[in-house]
């Protein structure tokens, strides 16, 4: 899922300075799952903003709502009109939702409440880790299902660098060396021949270095 975290409250308060009518708009997608932008968080943010404004001696009228998703046009349809009643819409969706509102709802000023961090998974309560970089060219079949693009600090393709010691990455002892794990996994699966093959230089266009990415499925086009 997309993992995000709420921006510092003061940053949001700065962002909405001058806004008198605000809609805090949540999303029940990934950001709800990672406890950053679902119903509960929308309420918390709205309350905190009211308190913050009150503390500053300013008034603000805040409405809240949470959409099923902010990344599908049908859910955004009502916002096109409703959003105009507010000075701004503070979206607690990931960057996708914020962009999509900006694209789809002209005349609506949309602001981000979250920092969209990465594609990751919930390790344990309160901990998420990055597991995929969305590079558009998956090599997981060659690496024992563990991604060196997302999980190696240098995005190495051909084995661990000289800084791998005791299964730990040199940049931070709390970070496991993914290449050690790939090595162990492939050896365990008797796939260690893969470790001897040279992985050729990558094509990074699929990772966004060729410009904004777009996907077309002819068969699904209307």
């Amino acid at each position: 899922m997309i993992v995000a975290e709420r921006k510092p409250m003061n940053e949001i308060l700065d962002m909405i300075s001058g806004v008198n009518r605000l809609l805090v708009l949540g999303c029940r997608g990934c950001v709800a799952v990672c406890s950053a932008g679902g119903d509960k968080e929308v309420d918390v943010i709205a309350s905190a903003l009211r308190l913050g404004r009150k503390k500053a001696g300013q008034q603000i009228e805040i409405d809240t709502d949470t959409l099923v998703r902010q990344c599908d046009p049908e859910y955004l349809e009502p916002l096109k009109e409703r959003g105009k009643q507010f000075d701004a819409v503070l979206s607690t969706a990931c960057g996708v939702g914020v962009n999509f509102i900006a694209d789809r709802c002209p005349g609506v000023r949309v602001l981000p409440a979250l920092n969209t961090t990465f594609y990751g998974a919930n390790m344990s309560s309160g901990e998420w880790i990055e597991l995929c970089a969305g590079c558009g060219s998956c090599v997981l079949h060659l690496t024992g299902g563990l991604c060196p693009v997302a999980r190696c600090a240098k995005r190495l393709s051909n084995g661990p660098c000289g800084g791998s010691v005791g299964g730990r990455c040199e940049i931070d002892p709390n970070v496991p060396c993914v290449w050690q794990r790939i090595h162990d996994k492939l050896v365990e699966q008797k796939q260690d021949k893969l470790l001897k093959d040279i992985t050729p230089i990558r094509d990074w266009t699929t990772a966004g270095h060729g410009g904004p990415r777009r996907r077309i499925r002819e068969d699904l086009l209307p």
Binding site: S157, N158, I198, P200, I201
Partner: peptide, 20 residues
């Protein structure tokens, strides 16, 4: 890794690795 240097906020390029 740039983390060890005097510009830890730099974007590491790593377009390829040493073998490539």
């Amino acid at each position: 890794h740039q983390k060890f240097g005097n510009h830890p906020q730099a974007k590491g390029v790593f377009d390829m690795d040493s073998i490539q």
